[in-house]
């Protein structure tokens, strides 16, 4: 039984985060793997079951402040411990930003992050634009060393800068990524992933979805293998977006 913990599902539901939950759920169900989704709200504790996947989505600024406060106590500490222990966590946009050291709002309020990733996020300067558009990113899968591409859509004002103790999730081929300057996108440490790509991320990049599922299942059974699925429809969706953004290369 795989448990998906959807953090702040009732608040951070912007930009189709639901697509990520549905992707994981269906790809388990189609393989006969029992799966449940638990929504973890404000003030509620995270209760791991041993075979878990944690999703932390994006929200609006007002909500970021509420979440930062909620995470400043034991919940943030639990999440840190889960990552140190090799737990699978995916943070998207606002969730990704709060997984760093700090996040500064456009009004200048500096919110503390959970500190899972060595990174911080600065607000958009008055003359800077929001970073918006389709994104194509090259990702090296550490498990196999092979290079693959993922597509998504980004829409963020904050600029994220990585520190020395964290690796980017991938390099931007088209789009802005972390800050629009250094060509990096997202972050990865152990089994924790952060990214600005929504749109939604997982439906069009099913191999990444499977990677998360496999990492989670292998926590209880090291030899677990996933049956392959027919990904023709997903593959076409990936290719059509990749072709659309390739025009801007």
């Amino acid at each position: 039984m795989l448990t998906i913990h959807h953090l702040y599902a009732d608040m951070m539901n912007l930009y189709g985060d639901r697509g990520n939950v549905i992707s994981i759920k269906k790809r388990c169900q189609w393989r006969g793997i029992p799966v449940e989704v638990i929504d973890v709200g404000l003030t509620e504790r995270i209760r791991p079951t041993g075979c878990d996947l944690f999703l932390f989505g994006g929200g609006q600024d007002r909500e970021q402040a509420l979440l930062a406060e909620d995470l400043s106590g034991s919940k943030g500490a639990d999440l840190r411990a889960i990552v140190e222990d090799g737990g699978v966590v995916l943070g998207v946009c606002g969730g990704y930003q709060l997984m760093g050291h700090s996040y500064e709002t456009p009004e200048g309020q500096k919110l503390p992050g959970v500190g899972i990733f060595d990174l911080h996020t600065e607000p958009r300067r008055p003359k800077e634009e929001r970073l918006i558009g389709n994104v194509l990113v090259r990702v090296r899968a550490p498990e196999t060393g092979e290079t693959r591409e993922i597509v998504g859509f980004e829409n963020h004002g904050g600029r994220t800068y990585l520190g020395e103790d964290v690796k980017p999730l991938g390099e931007v081929i088209v789009g802005y990524g972390n800050n629009g300057k250094d060509g990096t996108e997202g972050a990865r440490r152990l089994n924790a992933y952060g990214t600005y790509l929504h749109g939604s991320l997982l439906p069009k990049n099913p191999w990444l979805t499977d990677q998360f599922i496999l990492n989670a299942l292998r926590r209880t059974d090291e030899s677990f293998e996933l049956e392959p699925l027919d990904d023709t429809t997903e593959g076409r969706a990936f290719s059509s977006v990749a072709a659309r953004v390739a025009g801007r290369r």
Partner: peptide
Amino acid sequence: GIRAEDMAVRLKYAELPVGPVIP
């Protein structure tokens, strides 16, 4: 539509039958 393929994926994950995909 330009994003016909995205729509097809959405229907697939809702377990709805996908008809002709004609961008």
